[in-house]
Simulated scan of single mutants.
Amino acid sequence: MPTVKNFLFPALLFFFVFSLVAQVSAQTIESNQISATISPEQPGPQEKVTISLVSFAINLDRSSITWTLDGKKSLSGAGEKKFSFTTGVVGETSRVSVSIVSPSGEVIPKSFSITPEELTLIWEAPDSYTPPFYKGKALPSSQGSIKIVAMPNIKSGGVITKPENLLYKWRRNDKAAQDASGFGKNTFSIRNSITDIFEKIEVTVTSADGSISALSGITISIVNPQVAFYENRPLEGVYYESVLPGNFVLDNEEIKINAEPYYFSSTNKNKLDFAFSWLVGGKETVSDKSDPSAISLRIERGASGSSNISLSVKNAKKILQEATANLTVKFGTI
Rank of each mutant, 00 (worst) to 15 (best):
I154C: 01
K155P: 01
G157V: 06
G158P: 00
V159Q: 12
T161N: 15
K162F: 06
P163W: 03
E164S: 11
E164H: 11
N165G: 07
N165V: 00
L167D: 03
Y168E: 00
Y168C: 05
Y168A: 02
K169L: 12
N173I: 05
N173Q: 00
D174M: 09
K175N: 13
A176V: 11
A177N: 01
Q178R: 15
A180H: 08
A180K: 13
S181R: 10
S181L: 05
S181E: 05
G182Y: 06
G182L: 05
F183E: 14
K185F: 09
K185Q: 13
T187H: 09
T187S: 12
T187V: 05
T187A: 09
F188K: 00
S189F: 11
S189D: 15
S189M: 14
S189Y: 10
R191S: 12
N192Q: 13
I194G: 12
I194M: 14
T195D: 12
I197N: 14
E199Y: 04
E199H: 05
K200A: 14
E202R: 06
V203Y: 00
V203L: 00
V203P: 02
T204F: 00
T206I: 11
S207Q: 01
G210T: 07
G210S: 06
G210N: 08
G210H: 05
S211W: 08
S211G: 14
I212W: 10
S213D: 07
S213C: 06
L215D: 11
S216V: 07
I218E: 07
T219K: 15
I220A: 06
I220E: 04
S221L: 10
N224C: 10
Q226V: 02
A228Q: 13
F229Y: 09
Y230D: 07
Y230W: 09
Y230Q: 03
Y230C: 07
R233P: 05
P234M: 10
P234H: 08
E236L: 14
G237N: 03
V238E: 02
V238A: 04
Y239Q: 12
Y239S: 13
Y240F: 15
Y240C: 07
E241V: 15
E241D: 15
S242L: 10
V243T: 15
L244D: 08
L244R: 02
P245Q: 06
G246H: 04
G246C: 03
N247Q: 15
V249M: 11
V249H: 13
L250Y: 01
D251C: 09
N252M: 10
E253D: 13
E254K: 15
I255C: 05
I255A: 07
I255W: 08
I257Y: 04
I257W: 02
A259S: 11
A259D: 02
E260I: 00
E260W: 02
P261S: 04
F264N: 01
F264P: 00
S265H: 11
S266A: 14
T267C: 04
T267V: 10
T267L: 12
K269M: 06
N270C: 08
K271P: 02
L272T: 13
A275C: 11
A275H: 13
A275W: 12
S277Q: 08
S277D: 04
W278L: 01
L279F: 06
V280R: 12
G281T: 03
G282P: 04
K283G: 03
E284Y: 07
E284W: 03
T285I: 12
T285N: 08
V286P: 03
V286R: 14
K289W: 08
S290V: 07
D291F: 01
P292T: 00
A294E: 08
